[in-house]
Amino acid sequence: MELPVYKGTQTIEENELYYELYQHPERRPTLILLHGFLSSTFCYRKLLPLLTQKYTVYLIDIPPFGQSGKSSKYAYSLTNIAKTILTFIDMHKLEKVILIGHSMGGQIGLNMCKQRPDLIEKMILLAGSGYLAAPSRWLKRASYVPFFSLFVKRYLEKSGIEKNLRLVVYDQSMIDDDMRDGYTAPFLQGKAIFKALGKMARDKEDDLTENDLHTIQTNCLLLWGRYDKVVPLSIGNRLHKDLPCSQLIILDDTGHLLPEEKPEEVFRHIDNFITFEG
């Protein structure tokens, strides 16, 4: 079934939030998909066709990534990004949405659950990050130095897309030119992204504490790759312990990039979690 797609931007706090809407013709639950750090909506390309068969889906590029704005006036803290997406939900008059967050998208999703639990029906963390401290004072001070954005650019160029992709997937034979091009594209748009990453280093705060997590009563599904080298399974176990209404499922032969590596299996677990009423 080919669904109508709307692609556009919403201006919030003097920054543009890029999104895509896949509206299911029937009254179905609404999913909001959030990607990870240095990524974009591209990471859901294999999972999206499965989800849109049964659900209405909003794909969002988290500022400053993908096609969202890279304003120097915007606060790129997790708390403020969460607030921005909550504002988007209110502007679109959505209620009881289901969040799916990969990696950093999970951090933002948990922030959203803490700020506005009334809007979030359920939360799915796909190797969601957690327990990270804010960047060091040295890095925050360094980010004010002229040409800091050039250092960020050179660091990312040195690490290289091939090295990063090999880090995030278990079966490295799946890496092809489509993946390389898709994950490189957001960083070929000019200097603005690197300047925004410098500001993100200044704005980033500590993650939610254990006490914060204990207060989140949202039903959470945690899906984790057994061989995740970026956000290891130990983080998933710890989140499962600290989130009172959570369940953890571990995927074998899987690394960090679950939506790319095991889209069918991920969809099956998500669908079961959403439709289960208990």
Rank of each mutant, 00 (worst) to 15 (best):
P4M: 08
V5W: 00
Y6Q: 14
K7R: 10
G8V: 04
G8W: 06
T11P: 07
I12M: 02
N15D: 13
Q23N: 00
H24G: 04
P25C: 09
P29H: 03
T30A: 05
I32E: 03
L33N: 00
G36I: 07
F37A: 12
S39Q: 11
T41Y: 01
T52F: 01
Q53F: 01
K54Y: 12
T56F: 01
D61E: 05
I62P: 09
F65C: 06
G69T: 02
G69L: 12
Y76M: 03
L78P: 03
I81P: 00
T84V: 07
T84P: 01
L86G: 06
M91S: 13
M91L: 15
L94R: 04
I98Q: 00
I100V: 15
Q107W: 06
I108M: 01
M112Y: 12
K114E: 13
K114L: 15
K122G: 01
M123V: 09
M123S: 12
I124D: 03
G130N: 09
G130D: 04
A134T: 06
A134P: 06
P135L: 02
W138D: 05
F151A: 15
V152Y: 08
K158N: 10
S159W: 10
G160R: 08
N164M: 12
D171H: 10
I175K: 08
D181L: 14
Q189N: 11
K195N: 05
K195L: 10
K195D: 13
A201E: 02
K204L: 15
D207M: 00
L208T: 02
N211Q: 15
N211A: 15
I216F: 03
I216N: 05
L222A: 01
L222I: 14
L222W: 06
L222R: 05
G225N: 09
V231W: 03
S234D: 09
I235R: 04
G236T: 03
H240Y: 11
Q247N: 09
L248S: 02
I250F: 02
I250D: 04
K262V: 05
P263V: 12
E264Y: 10
D271A: 10
